[in-house]
Amino acid sequence: MASPALLLLALFVAVPFVAAIWFSLHNVRLGDPRAPSFMGITQYVRILTDPDVSRQFIDALLHNLIFAAVVVPVQTALALSLALLVKKSIPGVGIFRSLYFLPVVFPIALVAIIWRLILARGDQGLLNSALSFFSGGAFGSQDWLGSELTALASVIVLSIWQGCGFQMVILLAALQQVPAELYEAAELDRASAWQRFVHVTVPGIKPTLVFVALYTMILSLRVFDQIYVLAKSGGGLNEGATRTVMYEAVTAAFDENNIGRASAISVVFFVIVVILSVIQRRATSEKES
């Protein structure tokens, strides 16, 4: 009964993964009638130490890490606040629950296109218009996606907008599992709202919080769609300030037809995912015990 699934996983996960290791040791070019030539660990040496290739790769990795370092705490905190906001069953709260969840059903490619127009530079974009309107013209128009300073931040904002509702729902479910008696007991002890939050809510949903953080971190490492759409379809995104590891892998394979390097990037990417998952799991399990 397990065989169909195991066969599919072997064909589409395990085999390609092993192949990636082989490809990364060769100069493989798609459509090249000449056979791939062995080049040892040159690809790895290049992406890790060659100043030119590695600079792009390290930049990409750094962007992923910055992305994770911002998105994990911010999105988790925001999702938790939203969950707390919609937790209480007051009239109309269902509408808001759906509303915050709504962006989750938007494909990220579409999200990127909508935000590309909102963030358009000059006075054309909605955001620049709004800022100039509310500041009485004091706030000059920004090149949100093009500027080195704001490009990654812009991508982060649109990603959080899209992804936050998902985490909110998970946390909401966890919040509702916290026994009401605990809150009542805390109220009897005259605990303030903040104290209740710190001493009842947070411990009560801790495993879920950890899960959400871990999950968000893995997602942060995988970021690709929005960068590709914004950089490629004339979105004016500052590629140098936002390229991610997956973006590097895909452009190496697809635009430069360098399957070998792209595979090496994939392998390194995988190793990083594993290391970070292990570190985070270990850290959280230690704290718990």
Binding site: D50, D52, G240
Partner: peptide, 28 residues
Amino acid sequence: LLAIWGGADVQGELDSAARAIDSDFSDN
């Protein structure tokens, strides 16, 4: 070009592009 348009150092960007091109040529 995209990096230069975004304000990056021109010499640095072109040096790195030149090396990337040469290394691809020598691989092939």
